[in-house]
Amino acid sequence: MDIVVSVKTNLDLQMIRIKNREPVLEAIPYKTGDLDKNAVEAALQLRDAVGESKVIVLTVAESNRKVRETIKEVLAMGADEAVLIVDPALESTDQAGVARTLAAALQKIGSYDLVLFGEGSSDDYSGQVGPRVAELLGVPQIGYARQITAGGAGVLVERSMDEYIETLEAPLPAVLTVVSEINEPRIPSLMNIMKAGKKPTEEWSLADLGLDPAAVASSCETLSNLAEEQDRKHIMLEGGAAEQAAGLVNALLKEGIVGR
């Protein structure tokens, strides 16, 4: 089985500082998408369960510097090959552009049985890329997978919806998106990190995929992107536990939360 995992490199959001409501993005490190690592882990487990399978990781970015560590990390986790689509025109694309690029790359790769995504990226979390790729490829999609079993000519997926757990069966090829509860991604060993650099890695530009920059131009204009204003009192209640508890209860009385 040929499994392709689509992996995004995100800003490390824990490191973002807000200054005058503006996010300060300078010198923020990148990190591999959290759910994307769950998707890689799911692919590795499927590969090992099915046998005679291959896991290819696929990523799209405006520069290869941005994705270098991500690719190293997922190859060290155990993916077999990597394909990078790198082009400066991707600097200002949107979800539709990323999806079009991924779909074209999948067509060039040629053989894919399962294409795995995160249910949302760790920064924008729009959840658009997987479903858009499924539509472009004209294949079934199953979102929010929490368990994946390969069998027969297809795949059996248990997924987590708002109010119920649903099990679906789909023929291959299929697009799946995963939720975090599906597994605990493995942490690569030092040895595997050393070996990761030697795994086959391809790098293609948009031209290599037959796409011109206009094909990935964004149709989503961001008018502003500011932190919400929060006006909080920041009153720290001092003393021992009993004193602090009394302080909070008094505050709640004063605010009209209790004792009404």
């Binding site: 800003l11 959001l13 973002i16 807000i18 996010p23 760790s122 920064d123 924008d124 979390y125 149709s219 989503c220 204009e221 961001t222 008018l223 502003s224 992107n225 500011l226 932190a227 919400e228």
Partner: peptide
């Protein structure tokens, strides 16, 4: 956007 750090106002063209 940015994992909840900000609110983006988007206009689709």
């Amino acid at each position: 956007a940015f994992g909840g750090n900000t609110v983006a106002r988007e206009n689709l063209t």
